[in-house]
Amino acid sequence: MTHLLEIRNVSRRFGGVQAVGDVTAHVDEGELVGLIGPNGAGKTTLFNLISGFTPLSGGTVAFAGRTISGLKPNHVARLGISRTFQNLRVFPNMSVFDNVSVGAVGALPQGAFGALFGALHRRGRDRSAEISRRTWEALEAVGLTHVAAELAANLPYGQRKYLEIARALAMRPRFLILDEPAAGLNDTETRDLAAFIKRLHGQGLTIMLVEHDMTLVMGICQRILVLASGRKIADGTPDAIRTDAAVLEAYLGVDE
């Protein structure tokens, strides 16, 4: 059986710095996987390599049996991998509804003519209806329907995070990558977020999550990958990771 996501011997150098070195890992359909590691371990770089944003220096990435390394981010996104960002990338001067429909539009590509004059023929109208249906559905999933007409810039920080997740969900992804979703949230908000991620996972979505908040990661993930200095040092259940010698060393250092 092939894995949904398969990362083989992936590496990336920035000048003389080896940001990610020879990482091999996989994610199976339906998993909820955590990716942790000390600062500068290469977590975000690994995400960027998967989503096609940063070209690989070596190795391959395959998604659903198809090699995706070398594809542009918009192609990778259309294949079913969507992501959110550590520092948010919502569209501040667009309404919440429009923000999310960009995701739906991005996932349903079509020619320029149809996109311009779609409103004038029946198939185009069906498509518009489909886009607005997916948009409302995603807004409902994150609980932002009541602010749909609001400008994204006017939302509080926590809601902007959910907005970004809604935009990713509107693409109907097979695989969702969340880059530090709990950063900047307080304890209550983090607990709500954990419940929300679990609910998404419960609906059958495969999720990978980078997070500094250990209680969140340990609490919801089925499996955890640990990176340190660009290398994978551990891969296992939360309980195994908690007692792993290499992980403790990477996080706490070794006594001389």
Partner: peptide, 21 residues
Amino acid sequence: TRVGLAIRAVSNNPLGAKYVG
């Protein structure tokens, strides 16, 4: 139009737009 939506998204945040396809 959807072309316009894409234009506004790119003008707001090109990277974010790229990542949603």
